[in-house]
């Protein structure tokens, strides 16, 4: 009896040691992959930062207002932010690769899906970045044009331009990563339609007198005032 128990225990221990002997090198390989990934990610981060600095990317971003937006939200400069994003994306890829080295069958499919998904994330991030650039640029242009044309509520106009571009951008980005595609599109259509309908009703019914006054101000009065405008040259 004792002999049988000892035999079973020895067998189990041998199996455990066998599994451990098989698994430990895989863990080691995983750690090496992760460490290598960290080094590569760090190198890419440094290189990207240097290239972006050489290309005066921060100045370009400041020009379009992105830097100011990032500063307001406590984020670093655009070149630093992009470098950090690249670092994390690369390192996460290596971590996932490392998990693959472990050879756990359940992970394999998830890892394959993850690598199929990575380009979509990149494109979505790019869309977001360009969208923020465009939203800042056009909202500022709208604000300046409205102020110089002496339109009422220039901030509202500028904010609306920004909001519309951002909604469009987020919709496109979410669609790119395939997140509840139909829901997002539907939500966007409903929101956009509701805003437009709301404006039409508010302006057409609720504010018809205000609209008339506004139009009069910018046709009749403007002609009169223009005659008294300054002559700069």
């Amino acid at each position: 009896m004792t002999e049988l128990i000892m035999h079973r225990l020895t067998g189990t221990l041998e199996n455990l040691l066998g599994v451990a002997a098989d698994f430990l090198p895989k863990v080691l390989a995983m750690l090496i992959v992760v460490a290598l990934g960290w080094v590569i990610a760090l190198a890419v981060k440094a290189a990207l930062k240097r290239i972006l600095t050489m290309l005066k990317f921060d100045a370009f971003s400041a020009d379009s207002g992105v830097s100011q937006t990032l500063r307001k939200t406590g984020l670093p400069s655009p070149s630093e932010l992009l470098a950090r994003i690249a670092f994390w994306v690369i390192w996460v890829c290596f971590m996932v690769l490392g998990l693959g080295v472990l050879g756990i069958v359940e992970f394999q499919q998830e890892i394959a899906s993850f690598f199929q998904f990575v380009p979509h994330i990149f494109i979505a991030l790019l869309i977001l970045f360009i969208g923020i650039l465009a939203a800042n640029f056009f909202s500022r242009a709208a604000l300046l044009a409205a102020v110089n044309a002496d339109l009422p509520t220039p901030r509202l106009l500028s904010g609306s331009v920004r909001l519309l571009i951002l909604i469009l951008t987020v919709t496109m980005a979410l669609e790119q990563i395939g997140l509840a595609r139909n829901t997002v599109l539907l939500a966007f259509s409903i929101t956009f339609g509701a805003v437009m309908l709301g404006l039409a009703i508010a302006f057409g019914l609720g504010g018809q007198h205000a609209a008339r006054r506004l139009l009069e101000k910018y046709t009749v009065e403007r002609e009169r005032e223009k005659e008294e405008d300054i002559s700069p040259l």
Binding site: Q68, L143, L144, V147, P154, E225, E228, D229, I230, S231
Partner: peptide, 26 residues
């Protein structure tokens, strides 16, 4: 002399500076 509508100019100046504060600060 060229006629200048000062009242309107002052109003446009004040509105403009108020609305464009963030830009002017930069």
């Amino acid at each position: 002399p060229v006629r200048v509508n000062r009242k309107r100019l002052i109003q446009m100046f004040r509105n403009g500076v108020t609305e464009l504060q963030d830009i002017l600060k930069t």
